[in-house]
């Protein structure tokens, strides 16, 4: 895990920051719900939010942070062999990675949106104790993926620019 500069990063668009705020709020709530559950136990009160709400918050935490992770290009990469390629080779691979990311995220977005629509149509509820309609947390998943897709498109545009620049440099003697 690398240490991350948390200062407001000018690279991020407003929607990426807003989305990350939701992720942060989800994480704080996750912590508070868990603590509430521990505190309530000696009092003989069972706060059921733990299991179910926490796993939903976990979903929001992940999906709403993905736009920033994508934009900051923090996705894990095996870069050992890549480093042996030349400057242009790396630029091409990097562009290719960004392109495939756009397609892949679009596919995920499509499948997850379809699942969410199904949950809505069938009024699907969680299997656990609270029997919450799953469509709400799933909407978070879809929204997060949508924003992530936009971020990945922005990254791809940047990569395309870099690729042309690399080509220019290569063309010059």
């Amino acid at each position: 895990m690398e240490s991350v500069e948390a200062k407001a990063d000018p690279r991020f668009a407003w929607f990426e920051r807003a989305s990350f705020w939701i992720a942060m709020a989800s994480c704080v709530l996750l912590l508070l719900f868990t603590l509430a559950e521990i505190a309530a136990r000696p009092l003989g009160i069972q706060v059921y939010v733990g299991g179910e709400y926490n796993s939903m918050l976990m979903g929001w935490l992940i999906f709403f942070a993905l736009p920033v992770v994508t934009r900051a290009r923090q996705h894990l990469v095996v870069d050992f062999f890549n480093a042996m390629l030349g400057h242009r080779g790396r630029a091409v691979i990097s562009w290719l990675g960004a392109l495939i990311m756009v397609i892949y995220v679009a596919a995920l977005l499509y499948f997850c949106a379809k699942l969410t629509l199904q949950s809505w149509n069938n009024n699907i509820r969680t299997q656990g104790i609270l029997r919450t309609p799953v469509v709400w947390p799933q909407l978070g998943m879809v929204l997060g993926l949508l924003l992530m897709w936009i971020s990945s498109v922005i990254v791809l545009l940047g990569e395309t620019r870099d690729l042309f620049r690399a080509a220019d440099r290569g063309a010059r003697p």
């Binding site: 136990r41 069972q46 299991g51 656990g128 104790i129 609270l130």
Partner: peptide
Amino acid sequence: DQRVRVITPEQGSLLEQLGGTPMNIP
């Protein structure tokens, strides 16, 4: 005062009626 793992809301409220604490454990 027994802490019992339950998997449905019905079991949960039954446990509460019995004076126990329903718990939610994967």
